[in-house]
Design a protein around this nucleic acid. Structure first.
Lengths: 186, 186
DNA sequence: GTCTATAAGCAGATAGAC
DNA sequence: GTCTATCTGCTTATAGAC
């Protein structure tokens, strides 16, 4: 694996876990066993450029991952539960944010950096697009499909935040029980 | 108004808007027209102590505010809509996070500082407690009341995050339409 | 492409006058 | 209780050897 990918991979994990500002360049470099020279060779514009690269890679990873889940499961309900379940497993093994959520980055950077805000916005939009498309094949109208897709994304992100503060995966488990009910009666 | 309260008030706004690390002490002091000496007199343990003081005050403000909303509205649905509506109005006038949400602080600090995580956890718990108590008087069992209270909190926080990235209040408006349906059929 | 050494700036925090 | 001046350490970023 090349250095650039290595840096992106390690940095992504750290950014998801601790946010942007809380992670120093030195911390990232230590995790990769790489020095400043190498980093600034691949990312001449420094830390923010690295973050955006991370978000782009994250975008691709999440997309292929969620798409494959939706291919494996026939019903939207099963697919959704499978996604939440993976978040729960990640949370319980790692103890921090991983996988499909990046709220730590959003809330810290959205008001501070336009390029970062755009990258995050694209990511959320893609996720909701997948949910929404599936719901349309389930027979929903475009409007209600995208509305429910939004509620799914929002409640997962919000539950993730509650999990963080409570240091427990219960909030995710709770919405995993409630969201399917929402899918039934529409 | 005394200096201590002034500092807390201004700092709370800045922390909600830009997160913790992104706000420098100098920025807070400039907003108050106060100097470092005064700040460190009131908060000897510095910035983190100030943040926790902000969260405690925020806790009280949110509690009295939400409680009064619930007193004014007979139905849980109306009260919830009124709360979301206030968030939307704040968002549209200020353009940033205010009011009942503090996701920027949570996601940045929960993994970094235990005292801050505790303060945030208490705040979320209080909010959910109010929702939940009201739902119980509506006839729900304790379990389903607290589950739905959690979904309400999570989806509002998540929607707030989506509003930030999209720079639009639409996500909040969407969940304002969907959540009442959830309250109907339980 | 990767390293070391160093720069330049800003953060949070302190000391002591008033 | 509030001010100014200062300190220390850490941050991102750069320069230049290899």
């Amino acid at each position: 694996m090349d250095t650039k990918s290595l840096i992106i991979e390690k940095a992504t994990i750290l950014f998801q876990q601790k946010g942007y500002k809380s992670v120093g360049l030195t911390e990232i470099l230590k995790a990769c066993n790489v020095t400043k020279g190498a980093l600034y060779h691949h990312f001449p514009n420094g830390k923010e450029q690295l973050l955006i690269a991370c978000l782009q890679v994250l975008n691709e990873v999440i997309m292929t991952d969620i798409e494959s889940i939706f291919r494996r499961h026939l019903s939207t309900k099963e697919a959704l539960l499978s996604i939440i379940d993976k978040l729960i497993r990640d949370l319980e093994t790692e103890g921090t944010i991983t996988g499909y959520t990046f709220s730590s980055i959003v809330s810290e950077m959205a008001t501070v950096s336009e390029p970062v805000r755009h990258a995050c916005s694209a990511l959320y939009e893609n996720i909701q697009q997948i949910y929404s498309a599936k719901l349309v094949t389930d027979g929903l109208s475009n409007e209600s499909a995208s509305a429910i897709a939004l509620l799914m994304t929002a409640s997962i992100e919000g539950a993730m935040m509650l999990c963080l503060t409570q240091q427990s995966s219960d909030p995710l488990k709770t919405i995993a029980k409630l969201l399917p009910k929402l899918l039934k009666d529409i």
